[in-house]
Design a protein around this nucleic acid. Structure first.
Lengths: 216, 216
DNA sequence: CTCGGTGCTGTGAACGCGCTGAGGACACCG
DNA sequence: CGGTGTCCTCAGCGCGTTCACAGCACCGAG
């Protein structure tokens, strides 16, 4: 959770309360600092005061949204005018709470915000009867699960993103192995061997002198 | 837009106002009628009164969510107690407005809801016979209560929001632990160990070199 | 058919990941 | 002021993973 609030006492109280609820909380005291923190990502939601030194909460959200960041934002403000509230929401905030607010309500609204906005990514790579799910880190061959080690998985992942294309051994070494690390030049051959054993002999074709190709 | 409101004058006023804004509006006058309409789908959002004949707004949302409908819901109520509001939100509503409300604010909140779209998550996370209620902060396993510490709860919460997916230790460290704090890199392993002890050995799978996965 | 180069695989060893138990720091409570 | 509970660090251990090496198989050219 990111809390952007310049009033030190309120910020500290929020931090303590949220931490007690099990949230990991960072606090920023100024608009620009808050914007920076939000930009770097890694937060599940942001609690944002409107009156901030350096950059108003309105402007902060507007910029964030303009930069394609869709972090859920709960706006806090002493302004309880209906137009203030409408302005805040129309800037891109997801909820708006006027001070003084009830802590119970704050938590409930925060939970409602966190419930939303999960960019489900149904990206599953599939070639023939081979399926690879990067998120679940699962590989199946004809609906039968295949267990792969980390390195084997990384190698197959890379190959399955360009099925049918010939990929050179040096390219694989660069991308699947740590570039900095000095690895034996035949490591690729070894791991292609492992994969063949688990996936079937003729799934990975050798193109002599050029590299490997995933049969389509 | 679906408006569920039994007070005829308010319902008519809402319908007229929203139509002027370009929304297509249907009105239902009772709880059961509203639930039926919402179930049939096709709406982008619902405005829902709490006090309804036949079925309360709370119950209506709860049933809708239980049936895997994630239509955005803006709840309206004359009850302005903080716990009423928290209850409404924890039932699965996305926003809560107390009567009397400003029409300008209603519109702004509606726009904010529509911006976010429908894909949401249930108020109670359930995987297999594990259930976790973020609002009540309770976890049950096969209907037996399991007591967790704050950190254990936060960790399980995070994992249960993406069941089946592999989540890396660094991601867990970033989201469950305070980013600012320097934590020992194996803290995650320790807490996974605690959870395993309380939830059963094979519920949390280790994916060597990648992270952890909550068995589905 | 021969021969050099390229790719494949079995073996074994070292590494490092992940797990656990012990224990210290700290807050909270009576 | 001790008791209790949580959070976290640390060190050690077991074992799967990774990798180097060497010998063998295979391919294509002459």
């Amino acid at each position: 959770m990111l809390v952007v609030e310049d009033e030190a006492r309120l910020a500290a109280a929020l931090q303590r309360g949220l931490q007690a609820e099990g949230f990991a909380v960072d606090v920023a005291g100024t608009g620009p600092a808050g914007l920076d923190a939000a930009r770097h990502g890694g937060y599940d939601a942001m609690i944002l005061d409107v009156m901030l030194p350096g950059l108003s909460g309105y402007e902060l959200v507007r910029r964030l949204r303009a930069e394609q960041h869709w972090l859920p934002v709960l706006m806090l403000s002493a302004k309880d005018g209906e137009y203030d509230q409408a302005d805040g929401l129309d800037c891109g905030a997801d909820d708006y709470l006027t001070k003084p607010f009830s802590y119970v309500v704050l938590l409930a609204r925060l939970r409602a915000l966190l419930r939303r906005g999960a960019p489900e990514r149904p990206t599953v790579l599939a070639v023939d009867d081979l399926r690879l799910d990067p998120a679940r880190r699962r590989v199946t061959r004809a609906d039968a699960e295949v267990t792969l080690t980390a390195r084997e998985f990384a190698l197959l992942d890379y190959l399955m993103r360009r099925p049918g294309q010939v990929i050179s051994k040096t390219e694989l070494l660069d991308h699947v192995w740590d570039a900095s690390l000095e690895t034996a030049p035949n490591a690729v051959e070894v791991y292609v061997g492992y994969l063949r054993r688990k996936l079937g002999r003729d799934r990975l074709e050798t193109v002599r002198g050029a590299g490997y190709r995933l049969a389509t």
